[in-house]
Write a protein that binds this DNA or RNA. Sequence first.
DNA 1: TCCCAGGCTCTCT
DNA 2: AGAGAGCATGGG
Length: 275
Amino acid sequence: MNDIVFNQNCIRIINVKNFNLSQTLDCGQTFRWSVNDKGVWSGVAGGKYIELYEDNGDIVIDGSNKDDFINFWSDYFDLSRDYGAVIKDFSSNEVLKKAALISGGIRILRQEPFEALCSFIISQNNNIPRIKGIINRLCTSFGEPIINSYTFPTAERLAALSIEDLAPIRSGFRAKYIIDAARRVAGGEIDLNSLKNLSYDEARTALLKIKGVGPKVADCALLYGCGHIEAFPKDVWINRALTAYFGGEIPECAKGAAGIAQQYIFYYIRESTKK
DNA sequence: TCCCAGGCTCTCT
DNA sequence: AGAGAGCATGGG
């Protein structure tokens, strides 16, 4: 764990390794963060709004406090994981080593499970700018107002809505899936928090019962929302990369933290095919 | 304009 | 069990 300096409403994580804000917050694992022209990121997680920026090798969090950091943000940003050791493991595969070299500032965020689940239900057959727009409208319409923003809506709130009520967020055919997920969660049929303690296979089976949740969305919810680092979401980009660079198989050296490898590969192939 | 997007469901073999 | 159409909407 890094050295942390706590001041009034301002937290400084000293000399933090493998943590690039742009890579972590804009790599497609979360959709609620944005950056201003001064390089300051802002967003909401855990019902709390913060701003953060990089400063001379440190990461500075504005608008939080020691309790929230210890109880939430430290875990959210996965600060207790040694990414250097993970990358070292990955380095026995040459392509993965190369991918980690450019994407090693990504950290897997430990997001709230319901937000992760809904976000990736919305992501299906969709593009990232529009995913962000839909999620933003979902929060402003049905979340709780807080200083500077809105919380992500609860399952209970969404479960009480009809599909038509979601029309303003313009999520298209995904609206019925969001409602189905919310009702199963709010009704207790699926206990998202308990999925963290189930095996990967058991947790995945539970999520696949939700309408509109298939293998890819389930794996995203498990990886980003339930701490299942062995989940390896396969989307069109990853399938392309697996075929092109890895002989169609996840490299053996990545199995221990496949979800991190997945993000590195996702970032790598998208960077390398950027126009 | 037209293609397609971090997929999934449903239907038809 | 596997293939293919259709899906709502709008970004580029």
